[in-house]
Design a protein around this nucleic acid. Sequence first.
DNA 1: TATGAATGAGTATTCATTCAT
DNA 2: AATGAATGAATACTCATTCAT
Lengths: 208, 208, 208, 208
Amino acid sequence: MNSQSGETMGKVEAILDAASTLFAKKGFDQTAVSEIASLAGVANGTVIYHFKSKENLLYVMSWFTLNSLHRRTRMEVAGASCGLEGVDLYIRAFFGYLEDQPNQLLIYLQNSTTGGRHADPLLLSNLVALRTRYLEMLTEVVREGLADESIAPLEAGVPDDVARGIQSLLFGAAWMVLCHHEKREPLLREALATAYMRLAAEARCPGS
Amino acid sequence: MNSQSGETMGKVEAILDAASTLFAKKGFDQTAVSEIASLAGVANGTVIYHFKSKENLLYVMSWFTLNSLHRRTRMEVAGASCGLEGVDLYIRAFFGYLEDQPNQLLIYLQNSTTGGRHADPLLLSNLVALRTRYLEMLTEVVREGLADESIAPLEAGVPDDVARGIQSLLFGAAWMVLCHHEKREPLLREALATAYMRLAAEARCPGS
Amino acid sequence: MNSQSGETMGKVEAILDAASTLFAKKGFDQTAVSEIASLAGVANGTVIYHFKSKENLLYVMSWFTLNSLHRRTRMEVAGASCGLEGVDLYIRAFFGYLEDQPNQLLIYLQNSTTGGRHADPLLLSNLVALRTRYLEMLTEVVREGLADESIAPLEAGVPDDVARGIQSLLFGAAWMVLCHHEKREPLLREALATAYMRLAAEARCPGS
Amino acid sequence: MNSQSGETMGKVEAILDAASTLFAKKGFDQTAVSEIASLAGVANGTVIYHFKSKENLLYVMSWFTLNSLHRRTRMEVAGASCGLEGVDLYIRAFFGYLEDQPNQLLIYLQNSTTGGRHADPLLLSNLVALRTRYLEMLTEVVREGLADESIAPLEAGVPDDVARGIQSLLFGAAWMVLCHHEKREPLLREALATAYMRLAAEARCPGS
DNA sequence: TATGAATGAGTATTCATTCAT
DNA sequence: AATGAATGAATACTCATTCAT
């Protein structure tokens, strides 16, 4: 979201950019609409004109965040040669995003802790749907690993839980990095180690 | 925090109780001091009189939360017959607390996402120290497991990372349960399975 | 104002129509220009483009209201066979308008309670002049009644006051109907009864 | 309402006093809460603290207005020696109030034209009840006049309508005085003349 | 003639905090 | 210890109006 490539940044983009910075630095509630406006170089009313409410702006940003995380992950996972490597790349994509866009993830974590009050219901349901798709991508990868035997057999229903468990690990790690200032690298290594030991079949990727 | 043992609840306890409920339901920023006061059955000024500021109240609550989680965990872990079982009990204690005091954990998660603004510095450093102790307890248990060989050998420095990894898993799971309304049970099972596969030596508890 | 005769309603008429509805329902100050615009199916700027300001729109509407009341009254009064009957018809015309165009009268009443702020002075003086003519029409009819002896003799200057008294009765009745939801019919009967007892000579219309 | 007798005016009274002046001068919507506050010599928040909302303040004032009009009228009417004189005094009391408290009546007229939006429902129903009592007082006086034969016989149901008719006359006169700057005296004379001709029996007050 | 994105001054209301009692 | 009336700075949102197209 930071710094649009072109020289002409639309007002909407400028607002998203400014809000992104300020929400991450001071938190949603501690950021005044007027601060966003002045950082974005627009009038107060313009923020509300485009996003209808401050809270909607937050949800739009959360959606963009999750969407770009989802896209990035999907692209990276696409290059996997087996299911287990897919899980590996899913995890690495998350930590890559955590490195590149820490603000976005922090805002996403904040946002999740409060239920949407004045947000556009459509936006809200889109967000939930996207969250579900992001989780399902992982479940799918795990299933592929079961099929190609890079992942050791799991009982029915367990793949879903494994995916949820890995997501817990990821968002928990993001939380510890962003809120408790833990280092990212060791947590990435642990996440990978944990995932491999939880999932890997004896013979890793078939044919390797 | 809910329901004091004695027959008459002191005003301080009543305020903590009310704040606990409201912060969890609506979030810190969306809860007015006057709401806390009226739910606690005291006057507006009384809240500030006892806690000096609204924010301090939040940190006092966070400290209590972490403290009771720490105590509970220590007591349960004390009954472990080996290091690996200690890890098992540490995880179960966390999920037990998550079941019994979801509000407290939710507030703790919320609180962490925003840096302390006007809080008493002493309180803040106490909180950080307690957090460290809570993490070190887990590290310690892992080291015990290495010593008693219930946990497979780990290179130097790794036990620290393992502990952080497990904490990520725990707080991430709490986040998914409290914010995304995931079910607690499957996440507990996954956390335990993950921990065992990450740590367990071939022969589990020695002599068992 | 409602529904223009032609098949396509011009934008100006559409705006007047929408404003008429909204001002009557929510009051002038509580009606946003953007609401008028969207109900009229035009852009925001179009309303200002045609009427120069929101307040001008109100005065234009008030003028139309008073003008159509005046025209309707004049036409009906023209059919009177004596002065007293003229008064009768004047009163009936008012209540007829109250029945057909309650919104218009309500807006007129509202508008009158607040002094013109930024309105075009020309428009404002036209409005005052029209108000005067509407009152003078009644005075004139009373004078005719004195001349044709359908109305009992009145001292000099009193015809003016009688006319003002009757107008008080009419606008007060409109106020009670529109604001206090009193029924129109009984008030019409009372208005007529009152006027007759106040004015009628023994022998009503001469020659009848 | 204007100027409390004692030297110490409570904040609530000061606010009512200030609001009374400003609402009459500029209208409800054109008066900012901050203007009321500064004229009353209190902080902005104090206005809302006591009246909960700007609109509630308006309704409180309307109630006070109607209440003092009601009390004044009841006291004056009490001195009537017959029903017809009661009507006379009722009318004179209204015009007396119009002379003494024009602001209050103007605000009351304004207020009536807009339905209560954010007002305390209790306050609103009290207002309606008081309005009804004020009208019933007039109906009652008319009935007394029928009983003591100072008023000529009326068919059943008509006394109610007569009372409504007279109220129309009164509020319409207030409207013309306050909004159209008509003179009060001639309208009072006309109101009395009209009432007498509408109601008086041949032999006025019995025994006179 | 018509538009609608953009404005920015204006405002009711909120709320943590103070302090006299 | 406890109160609650009073505060006043802070703020999200409104909306009439402008102007480039």
